[in-house]
Lab assay of single mutants.
Amino acid sequence: SKDAAQYVYDEAQKGVTQVTVNGVTFKFDNWQKLLKYAQKLLN
């Protein structure tokens, strides 16, 4: 959902490398990768 994507995006902006959405945890090597993933979700 857009809300989940926005949440992931906001978390990535904080510099975190993992985020949990609806009980599913996504882990990334660095926050830039998390940010890229979030941007994909938002598009």
Rank of each mutant, 00 (worst) to 15 (best):
S1R: 04
S1H: 13
S1M: 11
S1L: 12
K2V: 14
K2T: 12
D3M: 10
D3H: 06
A4P: 13
A4C: 15
A4K: 09
A4N: 10
A4L: 08
A4H: 07
A4D: 14
A5N: 07
A5F: 10
A5K: 03
A5G: 06
A5L: 12
A5S: 06
Q6D: 14
Q6Y: 04
Q6S: 03
Q6T: 03
Q6N: 02
Q6C: 15
Y7C: 15
Y7H: 15
Y7Q: 14
V8N: 09
V8M: 05
Y9A: 12
Y9G: 13
Y9I: 11
Y9E: 13
Y9K: 02
D10F: 13
D10R: 01
D10H: 05
D10S: 06
D10P: 08
D10A: 08
D10Q: 07
E11V: 14
E11H: 09
E11Y: 10
E11F: 14
A12F: 12
A12N: 06
A12S: 06
A12L: 10
A12M: 11
A12P: 08
A12Y: 08
Q13G: 07
Q13H: 05
Q13P: 06
Q13C: 15
Q13L: 12
K14Y: 05
K14Q: 08
K14L: 10
K14H: 10
G15M: 11
G15A: 09
G15Y: 14
G15Q: 08
G15L: 14
G15S: 09
V16K: 04
V16A: 07
V16T: 03
V16Y: 07
V16H: 04
V16D: 02
T17P: 06
T17H: 06
T17S: 02
T17Y: 12
Q18G: 07
Q18E: 05
Q18T: 05
V19D: 02
V19R: 04
V19F: 06
V19C: 15
V19P: 05
T20Y: 04
T20G: 05
T20I: 06
T20L: 14
V21C: 12
V21T: 11
V21K: 13
V21G: 02
N22I: 15
N22D: 06
N22W: 15
N22M: 15
G23A: 13
G23N: 02
G23L: 15
G23M: 10
V24L: 13
V24P: 03
V24T: 03
V24C: 14
T25V: 10
T25F: 14
T25S: 09
T25K: 05
T25E: 02
F26N: 02
F26M: 07
F26S: 01
F26A: 03
F26P: 02
F26C: 14
F26K: 02
K27E: 02
K27Q: 10
K27M: 15
K27C: 15
F28L: 13
F28E: 01
F28A: 03
F28W: 09
F28G: 01
D29A: 12
D29G: 13
D29M: 13
D29C: 15
D29R: 12
D29L: 15
D29W: 15
N30S: 09
N30E: 05
N30L: 08
N30P: 05
N30T: 13
W31Q: 00
W31N: 00
W31D: 00
W31R: 00
W31C: 01
W31K: 00
Q32V: 07
Q32M: 05
Q32Y: 11
Q32H: 11
Q32E: 04
K33S: 05
K33H: 07
K33I: 08
L34V: 01
L34T: 00
L34N: 00
L34F: 04
L34A: 01
L35W: 05
L35V: 02
L35Y: 03
L35N: 00
K36A: 11
K36G: 05
K36R: 09
K36T: 04
K36P: 01
Y37R: 03
Y37T: 03
Y37Q: 03
A38C: 15
A38H: 01
A38M: 13
A38R: 01
A38D: 00
Q39A: 06
Q39P: 00
Q39H: 02
Q39C: 15
K40S: 05
K40I: 04
K40L: 10
K40W: 10
K40F: 04
K40G: 02
K40H: 05
K40P: 00
K40M: 11
L41A: 01
L41F: 03
L41N: 00
L42N: 01
L42G: 00
L42Y: 02
L42T: 01
N43S: 05
N43I: 05
N43W: 11
N43M: 09
